[in-house]
Simulated assay, not measured.
Amino acid sequence: MKQIYRSRFAFVLGWVWVAFVALNTVDLILRFTGKSSMVALAVLGVLTTIVYTTALRPATVLAEDELVVRNPLRTTYAPWASVTDATVSHSINVHLAGDRTLRLWTPTSSARERAKARRRVGARPQRGRFPTEPTLSKGEQAAAEAFAGKTHADWLGEQITERAEAADRRGEQAAPVREKWAIDSFVVLAVALALVIAALVVP
């Protein structure tokens, strides 16, 4: 079973932008005025390329047999046996066999999120200020304790390390890490480039 992790804020913001672009594209086509409309479409195309590659495409996927890292222009497939460790600073850095480091685009850990995580340490696991309000269940308390002092990136870094260690305990042999160019990103980029050229050519 695959588990997909990404920046929820960036993902939602990206789709809001896509909806905005779709409405404006329809309006520009219906009210086409020549060069000015083409310039507007080209600007929307360039901005959409940036939004797609930085907000919609990036994801970290924990698959059964490998770690899949989708960055803006490349996708990396790292078998768990080839992963040695994961460390977290602002981003998650996955250390691979052969002294290679793979930087994950998402999720990241901002200073604000880390400060918020520190404030959770020692917080009382109870909802509300009044004793009549329901308290957390044992499962919710365990989850709160597991996340105490940790950001989402910290937690995911631990999951990656645990899966790598599990693969090592099973005696799995390190397989080659595969990388592929992100065809979808280049398609979006090509469309934006075509719009820019059209805007320059149309009188």
Score class of each variant (00 low, 15 high):
residue 1 M to Y: 05
residue 1 M to P: 14
residue 2 K to P: 09
residue 3 Q to S: 10
residue 3 Q to Y: 07
residue 4 I to K: 11
residue 5 Y to T: 12
residue 6 R to H: 14
residue 7 S to R: 01
residue 9 F to Q: 03
residue 9 F to Y: 10
residue 10 A to Q: 11
residue 11 F to S: 03
residue 16 V to D: 01
residue 17 W to D: 09
residue 17 W to I: 12
residue 17 W to G: 03
residue 17 W to M: 08
residue 19 A to L: 13
residue 23 L to P: 06
residue 27 D to Q: 15
residue 30 L to K: 00
residue 31 R to A: 15
residue 32 F to C: 00
residue 37 S to V: 05
residue 38 M to C: 06
residue 39 V to I: 09
residue 39 V to C: 02
residue 40 A to N: 05
residue 42 A to T: 04
residue 43 V to K: 01
residue 46 V to Y: 04
residue 47 L to M: 11
residue 47 L to K: 07
residue 49 T to F: 12
residue 49 T to Q: 15
residue 51 V to I: 15
residue 55 A to W: 13
residue 57 R to G: 09
residue 58 P to W: 02
residue 59 A to K: 12
residue 60 T to N: 08
residue 60 T to H: 08
residue 61 V to D: 03
residue 62 L to Q: 14
residue 62 L to R: 15
residue 63 A to P: 03
residue 68 V to P: 00
residue 73 L to R: 10
residue 74 R to T: 15
residue 79 P to V: 05
residue 82 S to T: 10
residue 82 S to Y: 02
residue 84 T to N: 08
residue 85 D to P: 02
residue 86 A to V: 07
residue 91 S to W: 08
residue 92 I to F: 10
residue 93 N to P: 03
residue 95 H to K: 05
residue 97 A to I: 08
residue 99 D to R: 07
residue 99 D to T: 09
residue 100 R to F: 15
residue 101 T to P: 05
residue 101 T to S: 12
residue 101 T to Q: 06
residue 102 L to A: 10
residue 105 W to G: 11
residue 110 S to F: 01
residue 110 S to A: 02
residue 112 R to G: 02
residue 114 R to N: 02
residue 114 R to V: 01
residue 117 A to T: 04
residue 118 R to A: 04
residue 123 A to M: 14
residue 123 A to Q: 10
residue 128 G to C: 11
residue 129 R to M: 06
residue 130 F to P: 09
residue 135 T to R: 08
residue 135 T to E: 12
residue 135 T to I: 12
residue 137 S to D: 11
residue 138 K to C: 10
residue 138 K to Y: 07
residue 138 K to D: 15
residue 141 Q to P: 04
residue 141 Q to A: 13
residue 146 A to H: 11
residue 148 A to D: 06
residue 152 H to V: 04
residue 154 D to I: 01
residue 154 D to A: 06
residue 155 W to D: 05
residue 159 Q to F: 07
residue 160 I to F: 06
residue 160 I to R: 01
residue 162 E to N: 07
residue 162 E to L: 03
residue 162 E to Q: 09
residue 164 A to W: 02
residue 165 E to A: 09
residue 167 A to S: 10
residue 170 R to N: 04
residue 173 Q to M: 04
residue 173 Q to E: 12
residue 175 A to S: 13
residue 175 A to R: 13
residue 176 P to V: 14
residue 177 V to S: 12
residue 181 W to V: 05
residue 182 A to I: 02
residue 185 S to P: 03
residue 188 V to G: 02
residue 190 A to P: 00
residue 191 V to T: 10
residue 191 V to L: 10
residue 192 A to Q: 06
residue 192 A to T: 05
residue 192 A to K: 05
residue 192 A to D: 06
residue 193 L to H: 06
residue 195 L to V: 12
residue 196 V to Q: 00
residue 197 I to V: 14
residue 198 A to T: 15
residue 200 L to A: 05
residue 200 L to D: 01
residue 201 V to F: 13
residue 202 V to K: 05
